[in-house]
Design a binder for these strands. Structure first.
Lengths: 347, 347
DNA sequence: AAGTCGCGGGTTACCGCTTAATTTTATCAG
DNA sequence: CTGATAAAATTAAGCGGTAACCCGCGACTT
C-alpha cells in the first residue's frame, strides 16, 4: 500500500484539471504552462502525493528493480559488494532483490527463475561454485535480459563483467610467501568450475614458476562448495598433512576458505606461522586482530558492486540494444601480516 | 520486463476462451469447469506463462514486498538477521528491500520515506542509535502500515517486536567476568537512545549489585553512533585508562563496538586478558580464532529475522485489523573464551 | 478577414490482471 | 417440453499512470 493513497486524480480534481495534465506537469512536460506546473507541484506536495510505482511499471513495461544473486550475504566480501550495489541502485531509483545460492546450482537457477518471475529489469550475478552450465542464463540473455557478472563470471556469455585482479592478487600473494622463505606452498581453492579458481590458480603457478619452484599438483586442493561446510577443508588439510611433501605454507583462495582454514589449523593445534604459514583472500576487517594477524588479499568489494550496478543500469536504460561489452578489472591488494612471516622469525 | 512476455490474453486466445476465464482457472475458482481448468493450466505451462506481478499488485492494492531498515548490512549480526528475513519472505512470495541507516536518524527517515514511496506492504526496522523520536513511524503505523521492530525497538509504538534477551545476556556476561575475579568492569555501549543499551546496562548493573560491587558511573561509556567511527571508542578507552579507578575488564555491548575495541586494545599494545579482559556482544564466527579467542554474547540473528518476518506477514495478511501485539524474546548465549579468563592464568 | 500555427490542455485507450454483474449453457423436476 | 435453477463462461469496469491524438483559442501571416 502506498500511504496517503493520493493519486494523480485527486490532484486533478483538487485543481479542476485533467489527470493527464497532472501527469505531464509532474514530468515537467513542455506541453504544460509554467503556472499550471507550479500549481500541480505545490498541490502534490501539499497532499503528499507519491506516484504508484506499480502502475508506472505496468504502463512502462519495466519494474525498476534489479536482481542480485550471490552465494551468501553472510560473508564480508559479498556484504560489501551488496553495499556498493545498493548505494548506486537506490540513487538511480532502482530497488534491489537479493537472493542466495548457498553454492548450489539448483538454488541458483531457482533464484533466477524467481527473479525473472518478479520481473526484474536486469540481473547482477556471481555464479555458485557448483555451476558449470550457464545455458539458462544464455537463454535469458538472448531474450534481452541485461546481465552483469561480477566476481565469479562465465566466459560463455558475452556481456559486461566486473572482476578483481585475481591473477595479480594470487601472484603477489604467492610471491610474498616465497620471499618469506617458503617453497612448499599448498593452495586450497574453490571449485574448478569457478572463474576465480582458474585465475587465482594461474597466479599461484606463475609465481612458483618464476621462482623455479616445481609445482606439486597434490598440493592443490579444490573445494566443490567453496568451503561451505568445513568438512571439505578438513579433508583437504588432512590430505596435505599426511603427505610426504608436507607443505610449509598455505595460500587460500576465498573468504570462507581462508577463515575456515584458520579455525581448523587452530583446532589442530598448529602454530602459525611456526608450523605452517597462512595467507588468503578475505575481506574481513578483523584480519589484524586474528591470531595470528592474518596476511590477506583484499578485493574492492564495495567498488565492485558499484561498478557492476552502474554498468547494468546503463544497459537497462540504453535506447539502443547494447552489443559492446566490457570486462572491468579492479585491483587487489595484498596485506602482509604475521601469519606469513618468515619461519626463522617465528620460532 | 517479464521474460517470455506471455499474458493471460495469449492463453485465452490460444484456447478460444475469455481472459477472465483464464484468470479464474489459474486461481482455481469454482466458477470454472474442471476440464477447462486443466486445459488452461496445461497451456500456461506450455507457454511458460508468468503472471505480471505489477499488474496484480496494482489491482490488488499491495506490492508483495517488505522493507527492511538496519544500520549496516556489513555486520555479522545484521547479515544473519537479513538471512532469516529473506528465507521467510521469499518462501511466502514477498521480496525484500534492504536499506541502511549507518546510524543516522536523517538517513533512517529518508529510507523509510523511500520505502513507503516504493509502496511496501510492511516494515521491519531496527532503529538507528541516533534515533530518539519515532513520530514519523507512529504516523505511518496509525495510517495502517504494519511494522515489526527487531533488535532496537521503541516502546512508544505498540506493535510486534522481536528482541534478544539482552538483559540476561548482559547479566550473564558480567557475572562471568566477576566470577573470573574481575571487579572493576567497564561497560562500553551504544547510544542512550537505543533500547538495547538500556537493557544491557540493566543486566550489567544487576550483576554488579548482586555481587556487592559498587557501580562506578564513570566506567560506563556511551557511543552515540554505536562505534561507527572508531574515534568514539578511542575516546572512551582513553578516558577509561586515564582514570584513577582504571578498569581491569571491559564488557562491550554491540558487535561493532566489540570488534573495534579489540582492534584498539591491540593498537595500544595491551595484553588480553593480562592487562585488560574483554567480553562483548558479537556474532562473528571468527571469535574463536581472534587474538585472544574472544568471549562473547551471541544473539540468534537468523532466528530473529525469521520470527520478525513471520509476525509481519501474519499482520499483513490478516483479514481483520490487528490490535493485539506481542514482544518475543529470544535467548542469548554467552561463550567464555580466553579473553575473559582469570588474570592469574594469563600472566 | 480567412487560413495557419503553436500553446495549453483535454480525451481516450491501454498496460495485465481481477472481479462484480451478467449472459449463456447445461441440468433437471414436473 | 417448459420453467426454474445451477453451472460455466463472458462482459465490462476499473487499479493508477501514460501518451498518442485531438481541439479551442489567440497571434500572425498574407
Amino acid at each position: 500500500m502506498n500511504f496517503g493513497g493520493v493519486t494523480i486524480k485527486d490532484i486533478a480534481k483538487e485543481l479542476g484539471i485533467s489527470p493527464s495534465a497532472v501527469s505531464k506537469a509532474l514530468k515537467d512536460s513542455h506541453e504544460i504552462g509554467e503556472k499550471t506546473k507550479a500549481l500541480v507541484i505545490a498541490c502534490a506536495q501539499r497532499l503528499n502525493y507519491q506516484p504508484n510505482l506499480n502502475a508506472q511499471s505496468l504502463k512502462q513495461g519495466n519494474s525498476k528493480s534489479i536482481g542480485v544473486v550471490v552465494s551468501t550475504i553472510d560473508n564480508q566480501f559479498f556484504s560489501q559488494v551488496i553495499n556498493g550495489i545498493e548505494s548506486v541502485a537506490h540513487s538511480r531509483g532502482y530497488n534491489v532483490i537479493i537472493t542466495q545460492t548457498h553454492e548450489s546450482y539448483e538454488l541458483e537457477m531457482q533464484n533466477v527463475r524467481h527473479l525473472t518471475f518478479r520481473s526484474i529489469d536486469g540481473l547482477l550475478i556471481s555464479l555458485s561454485t557448483e555451476t558449470n552450465n550457464v545455458d539458462y542464463l544464455k537463454y535469458l540473455h538472448s531474450k534481452g535480459l541485461p546481465i552483469v557478472f561480477f566476481d565469479r563470471v562465465s566466459d560463455e556469455i558475452n556481456t559486461n563483467k566486473v572482476v578483481a585482479d585475481n591473477y595479480a592478487g594470487a601472484y603477489n600473494a604467492t610471491t610474498q610467501l616465497i620471499k618469506a622463505g617458503y617453497r612448499k606452498i599448498a593452495h586450497i581453492t574453490s571449485s574448478v568450475n569457478a572463474s576465480i579458481t582458474a585465475e587465482r590458480l594461474k597466479g599461484y603457478r606463475a609465481a612458483l614458476q618464476q621462482h623455479h619452484i616445481d609445482i606439486d599438483e597434490s598440493l592443490i586442493k579444490y573445494c566443490l562448495h567453496g568451503g561451505k561446510d568445513s568438512a571439505e577443508i578438513e579433508n583437504a588439510l588432512g590430505e596435505l598433512f599426511h603427505h610426504d611433501n608436507r607443505p610449509h605454507a598455505i595460500f587460500t583462495a576465498s573468504d570462507r576458505i581462508t577463515t575456515t582454514t584458520l579455525s581448523l589449523l587452530h583446532k589442530l593445534g598448529l602454530k602459525i606461522p611456526g608450523d605452517i604459514a597462512l595467507l588468503g583472500f578475505t575481506n574481513t576487517q578483523l584480519a589484524e586482530v586474528l591470531n595470528p594477524p592474518l596476511s590477506s588479499v583484499y578485493q574492492p568489494g564495495f567498488e565492485m558492486g558499484k561498478k557492476a550496478t552502474e554498468m547494468l543500469i546503463s544497459v537497462i536504460e540504453s535506447r539502443y540494444p547494447v552489443t559492446e561489452f566490457e570486462t572491468m578489472v579492479l585491483p587487489t591488494e595484498v596485506f602482509i601480516r604475521a601469519s606469513s612471516q618468515p619461519q626463522r622469525l617465528s620460532t
